[in-house]
Amino acid sequence: MLKDHSKHPTRRSFYAVLIQLLGATAAAVIAVPAAVFLLFKPKSPGAGAMVEIADLADLETGVPQEVVYYRTRVDAWKATKEKTTAWVVKNGPQSAVAFSPQCPHLGCIYHWEDDLTAFKCPCHASAFGLDGKVLAGPAPRPLDRYVSRVEGGKLLIGLQVKRS
């Protein structure tokens, strides 16, 4: 970078190279762990348990039910037990689906409208059918579903949401 006027150009550039090398190594030794620290996904301790939220015997096929249940949410270093909801639709004697209560557009809470036979979001008027598909409005994808399974006539869901 400096104009070289000294009597020993090779020795000077040797120093320059070494200074840059030492500087770059020292910087990397700090910068690499820093990048890992900031950008790697945190290891989450066992947030995979499924929770029972509904008994299929209590549900009517094709009639959405807003189910209130408790789950443990891991939020960085805090684990909180919170009360939350899911829209459950029974679509067979042994099968049901649980939709996340948040609209896939911008996260507003939507509701089932009986007279429209559709889920309707009050924010930007997105509408969804019983199967979660978008019927109208700006929603970019169908309703998100919780990973779920039916065991012994009961519906269990996990924390993870599957984007359709």
């Binding site: 620290f37 790697f40 945190p42 960085a76 270093w77």
Partner: peptide, 27 residues
Amino acid sequence: LNYGPTPTEAHASIRYIMTELSAGPMI
């Protein structure tokens, strides 16, 4: 960036840094 700066949060957040963040113990 990963620390809870109150007596109720501090200790647990350091445990988080040490056990759940990659390169946490290093930093």
